[in-house]
Nucleic acid binder design. Structure first.
Lengths: 236, 236
DNA sequence: ACACCTCTTGCACTTAGTTCAAGCATGCCG
DNA sequence: CGGCATGCTTGAACTAAGTGCAAGAGGTGT
């Protein structure tokens, strides 16, 4: 093998960096190539298409999600840990939620995550069918929560590039935010909160609120099923 | 004004049809033009960019969501109705969840939806801050739920087009599904369920399960707040 | 040294968003 | 009624980006 050869791993890592910077639609083979010090088309020796690259990058990033030791903690702690970890990962890689909506990747890391998640809710006492649904509910909520920040990255990039004078474009981006803020104060505030949060540091209040509510609801359903058929009974 | 002139409305309607067929990345100005019996570039007289077109189309579709009469029903019924209606709309227009993750549209219809949604949770008795979070929780869950079907449309289109022989491509798409099914049975099943469901007809079990759980959780939080500080207390 | 395998490269083709200058239609003004 | 301004349409053309291809280059085993 020649000395300085690309590897699929290297390519995927570089792709993740580009995706983090510019969002899903900011990734392109030519700039990826130049970041690797290679021609764009060299990539195609290692990876069939851009779609596959995105799937590989997505799975690499799924692998960053921490999987709690199910023997050591109760199901609710485990569920919270998984959801929170995924939320953090999505904060670092907002494009992942976009990719889920256009590439549906099923790499090994995601499969492992899925298995683990299912195990959590089975351990909690859900019937297999309901465990699956419970897992999906939490997963899809967390993914949905990341859509806002993802859009922010994408939009900012589209507004920023193109014009030679990046400054003017940036000014436009700011203006856009301002105008939106005036017309839809609440909505804008919500998205700003999500976008501006440093996910690795302070927790996101809105995210936690929703997650707790969902887990409360699942717990209630569980209790109802175990205790007979008292659905929807919740302490006044 | 000349007789046979395009209107922005007409363009947006045609765009929605194309988006429904081919997903967010299936929309292109040339085919949109030919569907309108006009040159692709004629569109630019009425609409500044493709991004704006997507935002207009998205808002047009938000407008299809039914807003219940808040005076007539209790908050939970209203919340369920709104979420279910949005879910149906997303079933008809799966690209909307993708667009939310890359275009963040704030049209009047969405603003109206947002206001209405907030009113529901305020009426329920949430403090303004929590009402906002509750609304966001439900909204983002519903959006997340639509990501799977959206990806299905996008992927199928990318696999289908390109080759002149659409049949062979279609065969590949089927093969892809088969392989996925073998490797990740549960996940595949989940997505198939979501994708294959006729949203206008039978309700989607997984979706309802999650929605009920979330509303249960919100109700519990509400009860706890009203009744003092008995958080997380749920009937055994 | 030679052949061979493994990558890498530049060129070129294609799709798609968008710009521009020119054209055509309609209605208004003189 | 003729001409002109205005409003919309068009086709050509530029650019970005995904990707196929044939030629080349570096390293290895014979």
């Amino acid at each position: 093998m020649p000395r300085n050869t690309l590897t699929a791993d290297q390519i995927v890592r570089a792709a993740v960096e580009l995706l983090d910077q510019d969002g899903l639609d900011g990734l392109n083979m030519r700039s990826l190539g130049s970041r690797l010090g290679a021609a764009a088309t060299a990539i195609y020796w290692h990876i069939k298409t851009k779609d596959e690259l995105v799937r590989l990058a997505a799975d690499a990033v799924w692998g960053e999600v921490r999987l709690p030791d199910l023997a050591a903690v109760d199901w609710r702690t485990a569920a919270t840990a998984m959801a929170t970890s995924l939320h953090e990962v999505l904060g670092r890689h907002p494009w992942l939620s976009q990719a889920f909506g256009s590439h549906l990747m099923y790499g090994p890391a995601m499969a492992r995550h899925d298995d683990h998640s299912l195990a959590v809710y089975e351990q909690a006492g859900f019937a297999p069918d309901d465990a699956d649904r419970a897992a999906a509910t939490v997963l899809l909520y967390v993914l949905g929560h990341a859509l806002g920040p993802a859009a922010d990255v994408s939009l900012t990039r589209r507004l920023t590039r193109a014009g030679d004078d990046a400054e003017q474009r940036m000014a436009e981006a700011v203006a856009r935010s301002a105008e939106i803020a005036k017309r839809f104060p609440r909505l804008r505030e919500r998205i700003d909160t999500a976008a501006a949060t440093d996910y690795t540091a302070a927790p996101d209040g809105a995210f936690e609120f929703g997650l707790r509510a969902i887990l409360d609801g699942l717990a209630a359903r569980l209790a109802a099923t175990e205790g007979g058929d008292r659905r929807h009974m919740i302490i006044k």
